[in-house]
Amino acid sequence: MNRIFSFIFLALLSFVFIILQTTLLSPIHFGLFYPDLNLILIVFLSLFSETKGGAIIALGNAYMTDVLSGYLFGIHTFSRLAVFTILKGFSENVYSQSKLAQGIAIFFSTIFSWFFIWAVLKMKTDIDFNISTGAVIAQGAINILVGFPIFWIIKKTHARIQT
């Protein structure tokens, strides 16, 4: 029962994050200097949720990101699933409650996600990838800053719901 509640809570949270990202925190207002709530959620899922449910929510979240940004089934879906998979693999071998591990996971995910997108665009299209390494690193830092309080809020809310 707890697992079902947990799944429903995280799925709803994923939807709320998508709505916030498309309205108040849309990159159209902030450029690349925006906190990527959806990526932060996927890092949270990979570190703290069970594999199957987490993977389903990550897939749904990434697919919605694709649909609402005009890419449909594609680049975000695969890049975010790759982030989820790698972090899930490594989360078995690290102490994921450590703030350092969480910070590295968020930062690495931001870099990896953009690298993945860059690789696909480079190999498949002639669209210019006009996002600088500096901007990606800056976004990684912003994601860490926003990620810690989000992790804390999700954990607290999640614990309250389960009790």
Partner: peptide
């Protein structure tokens, strides 16, 4: 799911391959 946890890099490379193949031209 066990394979996913044991070989995360390999799974990611597979995702990259599919992303490249399915990316809309």
């Amino acid at each position: 799911m066990g394979f996913l946890k044991r070989h995360p890099i390999l799974v990611s490379v597979i995702f990259l391959f599919f992303a490249i193949q399915l990316f809309p031209l």
